[in-house]
Amino acid sequence: MADSTEGDTDVRYLGLLVLALIALIAGLVIHSFIIGVNVTDWWKGGSVTPVDHIVTSLGISRMCAQCASTLYFFIYPIFWRNLDSLATLLIGLSCDFLCSANMWLTSLLSIVLCLKISNFHTRLFLYLRGMIAHRTVYLIGASALLSAVNSLITLLVTVTKISSGETYNKTMAYPITDCIHINYVYPVTIAVSFPLLFYCISSVLLFTSLYHHTTKMKMSSNLSISLETYYSVMKFISVTFIYNTLYFICFISCILYYYIHCVNPDRLYIVLGFLPVLHSSYLIYRTAKLRSQMSKGLQNVTDFLFQRKDTEIRENVEVVDL
């Protein structure tokens, strides 16, 4: 009976590893494409916009987060007996740091788009638009710093608990569980709530501004004005809002599941790693420069494959003629 249970566990773990590898490969391809296109464009002297800075930083953070989570997923179950609690904690905190940076950068992207596109004319709004437009790089650094501070606080809290000699109950259902991680449930939850709040405020303001603007244009007598661009931006805001909400729900669900059961929810971790891949794919689709480069790349691959196939056919025909 025990052998049957262990066999089922091995099959389940192998299936999760395959899914994690598929998500990792897809993420590396998508995120590295975004980074490569923007960096190459800057290297050639192309224009650099605040949105380009944020999207590139977002791609870097997402790629690193997926690599760290996959590494944690592979290493922790295999070598957990050789890892002390502090080393295990550091691996988990690196994943939390990168996930938090992903949330802050997504919120920063929404704020920049809100300030750039919205047609509010208040003094505070105009001041923020001018300030953020020239300080995007510093704000990206601030996002990383906030994530690092939260991880440092979490580390200090947990190390204090370890030093005090507190013990934690361990469930027998999952032998690699170490309930010491339960200490950083509260600071992580609080930390991810702030970027979500800023994101919701900026997204609602931007969507409201665009909605009122399109309504006024519809009511005007000038019917020659195209509203497709505005509808496209509103669709982008809606899709990104859905993504960010799902990401936050999945992230909090992982924390709550661990808090209640003291077990790592592997399936949720895989979903948490795959959601940014979907959003980055949508960013490529919605960004003209990235979409154009993706089309060229796919066209080159298609031409290469068909050219190779035609060459093989000709060689086979020549061999037959001989």
Score class of each variant (00 low, 15 high):
C179A: 06
S221K: 06
Y168K: 07
S202Q: 07
F236G: 15
C250T: 14
L268S: 11
Y269I: 09
P276Y: 01
L227C: 05
T229L: 14
F198M: 11
N264R: 07
F198Y: 10
F198H: 05
T245E: 05
Y269N: 14
F236Y: 15
H181I: 07
Y174G: 01
F274N: 02
N222W: 04
K216S: 15
L268R: 12
L206I: 08
V192E: 02
T229C: 13
L210R: 03
L290H: 05
S220M: 06
C254K: 01
C200E: 04
Y285N: 06
T287K: 09
S163M: 11
I270N: 01
L290D: 04
C179L: 02
V157E: 02
L227Q: 15
D178Y: 10
L156M: 08
S232K: 15
A191K: 00
S164E: 13
A191L: 00
T287S: 14
Y230M: 11
I190Q: 01
M217Q: 15
I182P: 00
Y269S: 14
S202N: 11
L275R: 07
V263E: 13
R286D: 01
F248K: 01
N169Y: 14
K216I: 09
Y211A: 15
T229N: 14
P175Q: 13
L278P: 05
C254L: 07
F194W: 04
I190M: 05
L278S: 11
Y211E: 14
Y259T: 07
P265T: 04
L227G: 09
C200Y: 04
T214W: 01
N264P: 03
T177N: 14
N169K: 13
R267F: 10
A173N: 14
T245G: 03
V271D: 03
T214S: 11
E228M: 04
S292D: 11
V185G: 02
H279W: 00
Y257S: 11
H212P: 03
R267H: 07
K235N: 14
L206M: 11
L197Y: 14
S164N: 12
Y259F: 06
S292P: 00
C254S: 11
M217V: 05
Y184H: 06
A173C: 10
F241N: 09
H261A: 14
I284N: 12
S232F: 15
T245Q: 07
Y231A: 12
F194H: 04
K289I: 11
Y247T: 01
T229I: 12
S203K: 08
V192F: 02
K289R: 15
S232C: 14
Y230W: 10
S281T: 10
L210S: 05
S220N: 09
S203A: 14
T189D: 03
V263C: 13
Y186F: 10
T167L: 15
S238I: 05
S253P: 02
C179D: 03
G273M: 09
V277S: 06
